[in-house]
């Protein structure tokens, strides 16, 4: 049995890259953190539900503000988020995180220093750098029209070489490109990527949204309608510009 198992490999390690939100903390006030997190989650409960999260405590440590990582992770978990890493922590903070099963991400690559936790699989090298600006996920390419009632979700960028009909919904964690009329709903950066943009060659959308900031067709004025435009986020406001 064990010999067979050794002969036929039933598992393998692969390296892949993910885009995960990073929570950058600038204050160690636990009550304020919890309060602000709650507000953020309330804005987009579906985005944050069971969302993985990497904690970045660089700013805190730079300003010598210590934080109880055990407590912080507890708070975050209680809010329904799933911390999967800590970055730029002190030795003490890293140890606290590891005790709760949260891996430590160093700036260049991930090393899980957990000799006592044998169930942790060894990370293949070179391990992924987890950050919002990580290597982009694969682009989804759609060559046929997206019809009313259809929904498309892309993990990375979404490129559509046809029209998007009224009543259709296209969503991407990255950018959206529509080389045709955009008449349906387009939501870019749905996992909170505020850098995501929407590009389209003919804007007639019912709704456009980037990282939860949206405009409905009533808000689109005549100067941008039926025009080739790009849409991006600036100071939490959607900007629609000719291209």
């Amino acid at each position: 049995m064990s010999i067979d198992a050794q002969k036929d490999t039933i598992l393998e390690f692969k390296s892949s890259t993910f885009s995960v939100p990073v929570l950058v903390l600038v204050s160690n006030d636990m009550i304020a953190i919890e309060q602000q997190l709650k507000e953020k989650i309330h804005l987009a409960p579906e985005f944050f539900k069971n969302s993985p999260l990497v904690l970045d405590v660089q700013e805190l440590n730079k300003n010598e503000l210590d934080i109880n990582v055990t407590k912080l992770i507890g708070t975050i978990r209680a809010l329904g988020l799933l911390p999967i890493g800590i970055r730029k922590g002190s030795t003490e903070q890293n140890l606290q995180a590891l005790k709760l099963g949260v891996p430590v991400h160093t700036s260049h690559h991930v090393t899980v220093v957990a000799p006592e936790q044998k169930q942790q699989p060894p990370q293949p090298a070179p391990a992924p750098v987890i950050s919002e600006s990580a290597v982009p996920a694969p682009t989804t390419m759609i060559t046929h029209p997206v019809r009313s009632g259809q929904r498309i979700y892309a993990v990375g960028d979404l490129v559509i070489l046809a029209q998007v009909s009224a009543g259709a919904e296209i969503m991407a964690e990255g950018n959206i490109h529509v080389y045709g009329s955009l008449r349906g709903r387009a939501l870019a950066g749905v996992q909170g990527n505020t850098e995501a943009r929407i590009f389209c060659s003919d804007l007639q959308a019912e709704l456009i949204s980037i990282a939860g900031n949206y405009k409905i067709s009533e808000d689109l004025n005549g100067t941008v309608l039926h025009q080739p435009v790009q849409i991006y986020l600036q100071n939490h406001t959607l900007v629609i510009k000719d291209i």
């Binding site: 046929h144 029209p145 019809r147 009313s148 009632g149 259809q150 009909s165 009224a166 009543g167 259709a168």
Partner: peptide, 13 residues
Amino acid sequence: VRDSDRMLGILSS
């Protein structure tokens, strides 16, 4: 026209 568009979506999926 919109209902037809919906039907086209169903045909293709």
